[in-house]
Design a protein around this nucleic acid. Structure first.
Lengths: 145, 145
DNA sequence: GTAACTGCAAATTCTTTGCACATAT
DNA sequence: ATATGTGCAAAGAATTTGCAGTTAC
């Protein structure tokens, strides 16, 4: 198993949490994944190497990592999807209701919106989740043929 | 019970759905509410007048009204909140993680973001859900005292 | 050594569904 | 008249929790 990234191990220690094999595996799974994963997918993946690993631990690990700001959860429909929370790499989700694919877009364009929220409403933003539903370019092209 | 708004009754008829007392009550409850409500709250409210009314019907009514574009659902945490989908009155949610209150902000500032999504990614937007978590002005003030 | 964590099973919460009866059109 | 909708109870899906045993520190 690859070493846990500096930040995660540090953040856990600093906050008084223990660095367990299970937390490392959850972290590594998210780190190696190119896309966000739901708890089930993370669990299934880790189970291949550690059959006793289970969903309860998956959720508990994700909860801790999320609390430490290492992992970000996005809710799409009724389930949560998890991915690393990379500093300054904010992004949002475009969900195609036709093919089910999800595109990630950069968060730059949201900056003015978030500023407006703080300036006009005095609301201090900690996280912003934008989930856009619609039809992706490919499905759009197929539909208009 | 007040008369159902023109649009809802029309939309139901036009689409081949029946105009039932239950759907009217759900619609009226949302129309008279100043804030979004979850299914439970809607059901409880209607039960005061009609004790046989139940959650299953609440969800089924909301599903129809949402499908017709009369009602909009926003997911916050793990549950859905419902409100009227008023034409050109798009708005988003600021959830205070401290006191649990929700502010509604106008959607105007999101317009450039949505244009960018269509222009740059060819993604045709049908709905955009923005849920911002953080600390509302009141809690912010209290915390910095 | 001991407080924190895990595994397992059972409980919760939100939402959906099957089916017999009721009702809008 | 009959297809559609409702009420009730039971099923589902995602997530959380209680507890006895395990592990990081």
């Amino acid at each position: 198993m690859s070493a846990m990234a500096r930040t995660a191990s540090d953040a856990l220690h600093t906050s008084g949490y223990r660095l367990t094999t299970q937390r490392q595996m959850v972290w590594d799974t998210l780190r190696l994944s190119k896309k966000h994963l739901d708890a089930e997918a993370i669990c299934t993946s880790i189970r291949r190497r550690n059959p006793r690993f289970n969903l309860a631990t998956t959720y508990r690990s994700l909860e801790v990592l999320e609390k430490l700001g290492l992992v970000k959860q996005t809710r799409i429909g009724e389930r949560g999807y998890y991915e690393l929370a990379e500093e300054g790499q904010d992004h949002y989700h475009l969900v195609c209701d036709e093919c089910g694919s999800t595109l990630h877009i950069e968060g730059d364009h949201m900056v003015p919106v978030l500023h407006h929220i703080t300036d006009e409403h005095g609301f201090v933003v900690s996280t912003a989740d934008l989930v856009v539903h619609g039809r992706c370019a490919r499905c759009q092209a197929r539909a208009s043929r």
